[in-house]
């Protein structure tokens, strides 16, 4: 068939596609990792420093919140990305390529992820924090033994959403020389009118997003012990005996 033949002979697919896939995966995983490493503590800080939090710091909290809101809401990612090219050159030594793109990707998604982390932590019942405080927990112990484990299903869901966003952002980063599937679609699909490459790219992006969502949902469910239905999947059911 013509399509099969096209798929196996089109240089956009046979030569450029494998590299584009690795570049996209590299961008998503590296910036995902940095987003997690920076965004999680930042989200925890936003939660604990809020008025009425574990260690209220109203002024600092306000300032950090404002910066975050401005990065996520006021500046479109495409603009942020271009404006961060000099910074990327300083950090990675190059203004193009997937690693350079990771700088703007990370800075673009950290505020987004930090907000999601903060929201997930807010869902932890304050009674649990009281219980841990009365046990004599330090603030660090509250964070590590109560907040993060209790909010884990929400945190996993937040990371999933962030990774999916990163797939989209990484495609945009391709337009400014980041490489990856976005650049492939742009160079071949748009500039060379190669519809086949365009279609293949779209299908791959959909598969990638689906895979991330599917894995994320699975992990989130596995770490969720809040309802009997999900908790029962791992541990055996406990029938009440003498005790009530």
């Amino acid at each position: 068939m013509n399509l099969i033949e096209d798929l196996t002979t089109n240089p956009g697919i046979t030569r450029a596609l494998p590299e584009a896939i690795t570049d996209t995966l590299l961008m998503v995983s590296v910036s995902g990792l940095f987003t997690l490493a920076i965004g999680l503590p930042l989200g925890i800080f936003l939660y604990t420093s809020a008025p009425g939090g574990l260690r209220p710091m109203p002024v600092t909290n306000r300032i950090v919140s404002d910066i975050i809101v401005n990065i996520t809401r006021s500046i479109p990612f495409a603009i942020l990305m271009i404006s961060l090219i000099p910074l990327a050159r300083v950090i990675t030594g190059s203004s193009i390529g997937p690693l350079a793109a990771c700088v703007s990707l990370t800075i673009g998604t950290v505020p987004f992820f930090a907000r999601l982390v903060e929201t997930a932590l807010r869902d932890v019942n304050s009674g649990k924090i009281d219980a841990a405080l009365v046990m004599g927990s330090t603030r660090m112990q509250i964070v590590s033994k109560v907040l993060v484990p209790e909010a884990l299903p929400g945190l996993v869901a937040a990371l999933t959403t962030t990774l999916v966003t990163l797939v989209g952002y990484s495609a945009m980063a391709g337009l400014t020389g980041g490489g990856g599937l976005g650049q492939l679609a742009y160079n071949y699909g748009f500039q060379r009118f190669d519809t086949l490459v365009m279609l293949v790219t779209i299908v791959l992006m959909v598969i990638l997003v689906q895979a991330i969502q599917w894995i994320g949902d699975g992990v989130s469910r596995r770490v969720d012990h809040r309802s009997a239905a999900t908790a029962g999947r791992k541990a055996r059911r406990h029938e009440p005996k003498a005790a009530v």
Partner: peptide, 8 residues
């Protein structure tokens, strides 16, 4: 080994 959600 029971989780709270499995207890009355």
């Amino acid at each position: 080994d029971a989780y709270p959600s499995q207890l009355s």
